[in-house]
């Protein structure tokens, strides 16, 4: 990246000068034809850059490609001056590396496994590249900080995030293997998505009018907990079992039963619902040891 930044800087004045005295130079370029255009693109590193960007788009398959590309190029510009050119000998500072790693891990959704794992590898490399220390590698401090940053802007309740982090973060001095790194980052992303889903579920439950009924919420959460808990990990039939338990029929029955229990109606706030739902998820996360 540093190399083509330099080349770009060198090539930049040419078009600017083209308006005035560069007429003859431009005519010459035109005479040399298409070959030169391709050559220029190659020299300026545009070909490689655009190809890389296209690959990233293909990997991540974002819903809004324009926004994704804009973000991608913005990051490229931001990260280039610090990392590139004469500063190459000196690695970027901790905040930059963290920001860059964060950007990498957010590029692709975790369901695009290959892309996600590739980006994870890039992020891991990015974090572990440190000139000052002799041995490269990600330590627990960096890893935990990255996890905190991933979760920070999310809608997940604070103490649930804290509970999750307690399970998956490492101590400052510990060396973090890539597999643990991948698992930790993935878990954070899935928690964010789970929270979003729980939010949508709450919207459905409250019917668009005010807070949802506590009994109904409890019934739905209990059904989910039941489906999560009863299943034995090794048996494929549990997928069927969970599907049957979480089908519309069973859920309707559970909710109906909950509503008929007693007449007193108490509301459950969105925060409380999210807290309870995400706690179910965190309980299923295997702690790192």
């Amino acid at each position: 990246m540093a190399a083509y930044e330099k080349r770009r800087a060198a090539a930049a004045p040419a078009p600017a000068a083209g308006s005035g005295l560069g007429e003859s130079a431009r005519a010459g370029a035109a005479a040399r034809g298409l070959g030169t255009e391709a050559e220029f693109l190659l020299q300026a590193g545009v070909t490689a850059m655009v190809r890389e960007a296209l690959l990233k788009v293909l990997e991540a398959r974002p819903e809004e490609p324009v926004a994704f590309l804009a973000d991608y190029f913005e990051k490229l510009v931001l990260s280039s001056p610090g990392a590139g050119g004469e500063a190459a000998a000196e690695p970027p500072g901790l905040p930059q590396r963290l920001a860059r790693a964060l950007w990498y891990v957010r590029l692709a959704h975790h369901s695009h496994r290959t892309a996600f794992n590739n980006n994870m590898g890039m992020a891991y490399e990015c974090l572990s590249a440190s000139g000052r220390r002799k041995r490269p590698g990600v330590d627990g401090r960096l890893y935990s900080e990255l996890l905190r940053r991933i979760c920070r802007p999310g809608a997940a309740p604070e103490d649930v995030v804290a509970a999750l982090l307690r399970k998956i973060q490492c101590r400052d001095h510990e060396a973090v293997p890539f597999d643990v790194f991948r698992y930790g980052v993935l878990t954070c992303f899935v928690l964010l998505e789970f929270t979003a889903k729980a939010g949508t579920l709450y919207d459905v439950l409250d019917g668009g009018s005010g807070p949802a009924d506590k009994r109904v919420c409890q019934a739905v959460l209990c059904t989910l907990e039941d489906a999560l808990g009863a299943s034995d990990f090794s048996v494929p039939i549990r997928y069927l079992e969970a599907g049957s338990k979480l089908g519309p029929d069973c859920l309707a029955l559970a909710m109906d039963r909950a509503l008929q229990e007693r007449k007193l109606s108490v509301a459950m706030s969105r925060e409380e619902f999210l807290k309870k739902a995400t706690a179910l998820f965190v309980a299923k996360v295997k702690p790192i040891d």
Binding site: F194, K197, A198, T200, L201, V204, L205, V220, T223, L224, A227, L228, A242, G243, L246, G247, P248, L251, M255, A277, F281
Partner: peptide, 10 residues
């Protein structure tokens, strides 16, 4: 709708 969301959470 409830079922859809809950299944995705699962």
């Amino acid at each position: 709708k409830v079922s859809t969301e809950v299944q995705q959470m699962w």
